[in-house]
């Protein structure tokens, strides 16, 4: 990552060897922009083949675990991360300042990385989940899942998909998502599925930063100017109806929790609530008084059931357009 910022008035911290005349002696290696472009040397940015994000990992489903349950659970978690990442990338080149642009890109990259691992895990656990493409298509499983399912097959919570608002909305949404998700991943790091446990352990480190970034901005906006406080309160009001859905137990989650491979989100409701309340207390704001957003139909189906807001199909239409034009494409 290239986030180093040199404060005004001091020199950049790049250390370069100088010869006696003081000129940079490294320049010969830079002189030809194309040197080595054609040879597949050790300096290649990436290999020319797709790397499986779970390459080298034993993805055998442990004994006594229902592969279909594990698969659908990974799909749910993977869709949360993918859809939320996609929303956050919309900030790219549009944030209030360069530091925030870089930070938001970092968060989106972390979530995208989690999504790749979780979708790959879902596909490895239950190949029946993976959409079929024409014979011989080189599209890997994670991309088949991301690009060749319709919105009704996406299992993410609706918080992840709602359209972006202003910067206050962005940090409030990241705070809510990461607080909820961190509590789940901290427990998921003990999953009986060692692959899922490893993915969660990695995610805990990443989302601790996300929560910290968002929490500091919530504090700053709450105690900054009248306008920033008003915008933050407005953003929280708009997002709060999506809070309760995060802690509702879907039957698939109950099944994996019972099998010791997943986490029942209802179990983390108290902990996540306490953490949010601590942030709100420091910021001098109250929890919004808003009820939960209703589901659809007699069973009140929501995100985990594949029932979404209007925003999701529109987002997917944009995200999937190039991939769907080339179902046999190689990228």
């Amino acid at each position: 990552m290239t986030t180093e910022h040199t404060p005004a008035g001091s020199e950049p911290t790049v250390n370069v060897a100088h010869d006696e005349a003081g000129t940079n002696v490294e320049h010969d290696t830079h002189d030809n922009a194309y040197s080595g472009l054609l040879v597949n040397d050790a300096n290649w940015a990436f290999g020319t083949d797709f790397e499986d994000p779970l390459a080298g990992v034993d993805t055998t489903v442990p004994e006594g675990i229902d592969a279909a349950d594990l698969g659908v659970y990974c799909l749910m978690l993977g869709d949360d991360a993918l859809v939320f990442s996609q929303r956050i990338t919309e900030w790219c080149a549009g944030a209030p300042d360069l530091e925030e642009d870089i930070a938001l890109a970092n968060i989106a990259l972390d979530l995208l990385g989690q999504a790749r691992l979780l979708l790959a895990r879902a596909a490895a656990a239950d190949p029946n989940l993976v959409p079929e493409l024409p014979e011989g298509s080189p599209v890997p499983d994670e991309d088949r899942l991301a690009y060749f399912r319709n919105d009704l097959a996406f299992r993410n919570v609706r918080l992840a998909e709602v359209p972006n608002g202003d910067f206050a909305e962005a940090v409030a949404k990241i705070l809510i998502y990461s607080t909820w998700r961190l509590s789940i991943f901290e427990r998921l790091a003990d999953s009986r599925d060692t692959v899922l446990a490893a993915i969660a352990a990695k995610g805990v480190k990443e989302m601790s930063y996300h929560r910290d970034f968002a929490g500091r901005w919530v504090l700053t906006l709450a105690r900054g100017t009248e306008e920033s406080r008003a915008r933050l309160l407005n953003a929280l009001d708009g997002l709060w109806p999506l809070w309760t859905e995060l802690f509702e137990t879907h039957p698939a989650e109950a099944a994996v929790a019972a099998a010791g491979i997943g986490v029942d989100p209802a179990e983390v409701a108290d902990e996540a609530g306490v953490i949010i309340d601590q942030v709100f207390a420091a910021a001098g704001i109250d929890r919004p008084e808003k009820g939960g957003l209703a589901g659809v139909g007699v069973h009140g189906r929501k995100g985990r059931d594949g029932l979404h807001t209007e925003a999701l199909s529109r987002m997917l239409a944009d995200m999937q357009v190039v991939a769907r034009e080339h179902p046999e494409g190689r990228w």
Partner: peptide, 20 residues
């Protein structure tokens, strides 16, 4: 938003971030 694979999406996002 339209990068046709998740790997390419990550590469592109990281590149644009580098430019910042």
């Amino acid at each position: 938003s339209r990068a046709p694979s998740l790997r390419r999406k990550a590469i592109l996002l990281a590149k644009v971030q580098d430019e910042a």
